[in-house]
């Protein structure tokens, strides 16, 4: 359902060309649980951004459920991001002036879903994330783990098939980090959401069924099974 064909992504740094993704091809099935590891600067985030349609490759093709996303117009790409992809960032990226409930609700608001329909969905999400008592708290009134849970709630409120997490535990202590991983795995197991986690934490990386290791913009190893 996800297919990358010969994806290249370069950045120009002064007179130097950085090959962030170097002829990457990858096939991902629905419901897979994949970790992406590798040294800093190896292109993990770039890979995730391309998969999340946040960034466009220089060349190659990216097929999402049979659609070549490299051919899509800007609004169509936005629609795909909204309906098919959830993103979780290391630094949460919550909107500071909005409380937990409003942050989770944001994708529904952007999608133009009527308030009456939104409310029960957000309530259910808060419940599920054990954030109900924190619903009215602003991000700066929440702990790191709670913030990341809000961010995950926001990422999955539109019921995407793919969840991309770029170092989701990078800013968390081990306890909250473990909670977040547990939550992500639960989503993968119970809802069959395709999960990709970029991490520097070997322990976290080892938990995935499929482990991709990147080096210098290339997929170095791609291991399946335990």
């Amino acid at each position: 359902m996800i297919e990358l064909q010969h994806i290249n992504k370069t950045f120009q740094l002064g007179d130097q060309t950085v090959h962030a993704l170097d002829d990457v091809s990858l096939l991902i099935d629905k419901g897979e649980y994949i970790s992406v590891m590798g040294p800093s600067g190896s292109g993990k985030s770039t890979l995730l951004n391309v998969l999340g349609l946040l960034d466009q490759p220089n060349d190659g093709h990216y097929l999402l459920e049979g659609t070549d996303t490299t051919q899509l117009s800007e609004p169509e790409r936005a629609r795909y991001r909204r309906d098919h992809i959830g993103f979780v960032f290391q630094s949460y990226h919550l909107v500071n002036r909005l409380n937990a409930r409003e942050n989770i609700e944001l994708p529904l608001v952007l999608a133009g879903i009527p308030p009456k329909e939104r409310a029960p969905r957000v309530d259910e999400m808060l419940q599920r994330l054990s954030l109900t008592p924190r619903a009215d708290h602003l991000p700066n009134q929440l702990s790191g783990g709670q913030r990341q849970r809000v961010a995950i709630g926001r990422a999955i409120i539109m019921k995407p098939q793919i969840l991309l997490a770029d170092e989701p535990t990078g800013n968390l202590d081990s306890k909250s980090g473990a909670d977040v991983i547990e939550l992500l795995e639960e989503l993968n197991q119970q809802q069959g959401i395709t999960l990709l986690i970029v991490t520097h934490d070997a322990a976290v990386g080892q938990r995935a069924h499929r482990r991709i290791r990147m080096v210098d913009g290339r997929i170095d190893t791609d291991k399946n099974g335990a």
Binding site: A78, H93, V95, L110
Partner: peptide, 16 residues
């Protein structure tokens, strides 16, 4: 800027 990026990441179009 970051908020704009976030809005786009969760589905906002240029027009939005």
């Amino acid at each position: 800027t970051k908020e704009i990026g976030l809005l786009k990441a969760i589905g906002a179009t240029d027009r939005d």
